Structures are given as C-alpha cells and as structure tokens.
Amino acid sequence: MPLPLPYSLHHLAYQSTATSIPSEQELEDMLTQARAANLEYGLTGVLLYSQGRFMQVLEGSEEAVHFIYARIERDTRHHNVTTLTDGPISQRSFAHWSMGFNVMQAEHFRHLPGYLDPNSPAFSACIAANDTTALHTLLTAFLTEEPIRY
C-alpha cells in the first residue's frame, strides 16, 4: 500500500493479554513480524511485554496504522485488545525504531512516572479521558529506564 505524500501523522496505542505465556523465541518471532510489517507500511513504534501483557504504540499514516491494527486485533496470540489512544500527532515519538522492544518485570512498572495499574479504577478513568500526555510520559520512561532490544 503506497503512502500518499505528504500525509499527516497518526498514532494508536493499545494493550492486550497473551492467550498463553510466550517463550523468548515466540517473542522474537513476533518482534520480527512486527518490524517487517512496520517497515513495509512506513510505521514506527514500540512493543512492551510483561508477564502475559502487551502494550504497543504504532505511528505513521492513519490508513497504515489502522490497517495494521486491524490485523493485530485478529491475531490469536492475544485477546482483550483495548485501544488506549488513537489520533493525530505532530511528530513521531519513536522515529528511530521500526519497532523498539522491551520486556519488563512487574516490579519495574511501579516506579515509572505516570504508571497506573491496569486493574485499578484510576486506569479506566485515565483511558476514558484519553490522556495521551500521561501515556507518552509512561512510554518514555520505559524507554529510558531499561535497554531496548533492536
């Protein structure tokens, strides 16, 4: 799908739960597939994984972001896919990565600025308010606190 230029930038972030706990090789395979698709469609982003939970951000043209997200929603390796934010952006936050990747342990989450436990009522309120500033603060903390696997 060739992208018309110029196009406005769009981003979408979601979280989901793994159908089963993936092995390191399965995570590597998933990352390889995500990077290939992102390169093909001009997307950048980051994929985070912790104890059976995924969080991913996609950035690019609105058409490409929604096309790939529709594929992600149909992927049987996870369920409970929940959109966290979906809208226009002025610039890419993850422009240097076709798909940055990080595996986090649960205890690493608690000290990150802006972190809300997904099981808390405050998390749902934050998502309902579509607080993309808090989301970007959280994701930036992930990227600066732990090394990204390229």
Results as ranks from 00 to 15, higher is better:
128 A>E: 14
85 T>Q: 07
19 T>F: 05
1 M>K: 05
27 L>R: 01
125 A>Q: 14
106 A>Q: 15
85 T>A: 11
125 A>L: 12
30 M>C: 09
73 E>L: 12
108 H>I: 00
38 N>G: 04
133 T>P: 03
10 H>V: 08
145 E>Y: 08
123 F>D: 01
50 S>V: 04
84 L>I: 04
79 H>I: 01
73 E>I: 10
130 N>A: 14
78 H>R: 07
54 F>C: 08
38 N>E: 03
4 P>Y: 08
47 L>S: 02
1 M>A: 12
28 E>V: 09
125 A>F: 00
21 I>Q: 12
94 F>V: 07
140 T>E: 02
20 S>H: 14
56 Q>M: 10
136 H>E: 15
90 S>F: 07
132 T>S: 12
14 Y>H: 09
74 R>W: 00
16 S>K: 02
16 S>W: 01
106 A>Y: 08
51 Q>R: 11
79 H>D: 11
72 I>G: 10
100 G>Q: 01
145 E>A: 13
146 E>W: 11
122 A>E: 15
38 N>I: 02
97 W>V: 06
35 R>F: 02
37 A>D: 06
114 G>C: 05
65 V>R: 04
100 G>M: 00
110 R>S: 11
36 A>I: 14
118 P>S: 10
120 S>R: 10
83 T>G: 05
96 H>Y: 00
142 F>I: 11
23 S>Y: 06
143 L>S: 14
49 Y>W: 13
76 T>Y: 07
5 L>V: 12
122 A>C: 06
105 Q>W: 01
56 Q>K: 12
47 L>H: 03
35 R>V: 04
110 R>A: 14
87 G>P: 08
110 R>Y: 05
51 Q>K: 10
27 L>H: 00
92 R>Y: 10
53 R>P: 01
61 S>Q: 04
7 Y>E: 12
32 T>Q: 15
68 I>E: 02
131 D>R: 01
64 A>F: 01
92 R>C: 11
27 L>Q: 01
50 S>K: 03
